[in-house]
Simulated scan of single mutants.
Amino acid sequence: MPRPNRFRDMIRIGPVQVGSYYDGRGRDRHTAACTAPKCGFSADYRNRAAAELAARTHQCTA
Rank of each mutant, 00 (worst) to 15 (best):
C60G: 09
C34Q: 07
L53H: 12
Y21K: 01
A50L: 10
A49G: 06
R25E: 06
N5T: 09
S42N: 10
S20K: 13
T57A: 05
D28N: 13
D44I: 00
V18A: 08
R48A: 06
A33R: 15
I11W: 08
M1R: 13
G24A: 08
H58P: 03
H58G: 05
N47W: 00
R25T: 01
A49P: 00
T35W: 06
Q59P: 00
Y21N: 05
T35K: 11
G26R: 10
G24Q: 07
M10Q: 14
T35L: 13
N5S: 01
A43N: 08
R56S: 08
M10C: 12
H58K: 04
N47K: 00
G40I: 03
D44Y: 04
A62E: 14
M10I: 15
Q17A: 00
P4I: 06
F7K: 00
E52Q: 15
C60V: 11
A55G: 09
T61I: 06
R48G: 05
V16H: 10
R12N: 14
S20H: 12
R56E: 05
R29S: 09
C34K: 12
T35N: 14
T57P: 02
K38G: 08
A33C: 10
H30A: 07
Y45C: 04
P2R: 10
C60S: 14
R12A: 15
R25I: 01
C34F: 07
Y45K: 03
I13E: 07
R25G: 06
A54E: 05
D44W: 02
A32M: 09
D9F: 06
T31H: 07
A55S: 09
I13T: 02
R6P: 00
G24D: 04
E52L: 09
A49Y: 04
H58A: 01
A50T: 02
P37L: 14
P2N: 10
Q17R: 03
C60D: 13
T35Y: 02
D23A: 10
I11E: 15
L53G: 11
A50D: 14
P37D: 15
T31F: 09
D28M: 14
E52Y: 10
Y22C: 05
G19C: 12
Y21R: 06
R29M: 14
S20I: 06
D28V: 02
V18T: 14
